[in-house]
Computed example of a mutant assay.
Amino acid sequence: MEIALPADGGLEKYRLVGTPVAQGTYQPASSRLAFAAAHVVADPLGDNSPGAPAVVDWEHTLEFRRHLWSLGLSVAEAMDTAQRGMGLDWAATQELIRRSAAEAPDGRIAVGAGTDQLAADNNSLEDVVAAYEEQFSVAEAAGAQPIMMASRALCAVAESADDYRKVYDRLLTQSSRPVILHWLGPMFDPALEGYWGNGSFDAALKTVVELINDNIEKVDGIKISLLDASKEVALRNQLPDGVRLYTGDDFNYPELIRGDGQRHSDALLGIFAAIAPAAAAALRALDSNDLETYERVFAPTVPLARQIFSAPTYYYKTGIAFLAWLNGFQPGFTMVGGLQTGRSLPHLADTFRLADQAGVLTNPELAVDRFRQLLRVSGIDA
Rank of each mutant, 00 (worst) to 15 (best):
L354S: 00
L239Q: 03
G359C: 02
V40H: 05
V55T: 10
N198H: 11
A139E: 13
R170M: 13
G242I: 06
D214H: 07
S160L: 02
L256R: 00
R353D: 04
I216A: 06
A299G: 13
L339C: 09
E95G: 04
Y14H: 13
N122M: 05
A282D: 01
L354I: 07
A22T: 06
Q307W: 11
E77D: 15
A42K: 03
L239V: 03
M149Y: 00
A311W: 09
V111P: 09
S288C: 13
A113G: 05
M86W: 09
V243K: 06
A191E: 15
A278F: 03
A274Y: 03
K231C: 13
V55Q: 14
L184C: 02
A355Y: 10
K231F: 11
T313D: 09
A282M: 13
E295T: 15
A153E: 12
R258Y: 12
A76I: 07
G112W: 02
L171V: 05
Q117D: 15
G46L: 08
L171A: 08
A278T: 03
A285V: 02
G72K: 08
N252S: 06
F188E: 05
T173C: 12
G242S: 06
V336P: 02
D106Y: 03
S74E: 02
A102N: 09
V336H: 00
N252Q: 03
G10L: 12
G261V: 00
A281W: 05
N237V: 02
G46E: 00
L33G: 09
L283W: 03
E193P: 00
E134A: 15
A42R: 04
D287N: 09
N123D: 14
A367Q: 09
E210R: 13
N215H: 11
R108M: 15
I257H: 07
A299Q: 14
P312S: 09
D47I: 02
G9P: 14
Q330M: 08
T313N: 11
I308A: 06
L73A: 05
G242P: 10
E210C: 04
G379H: 01
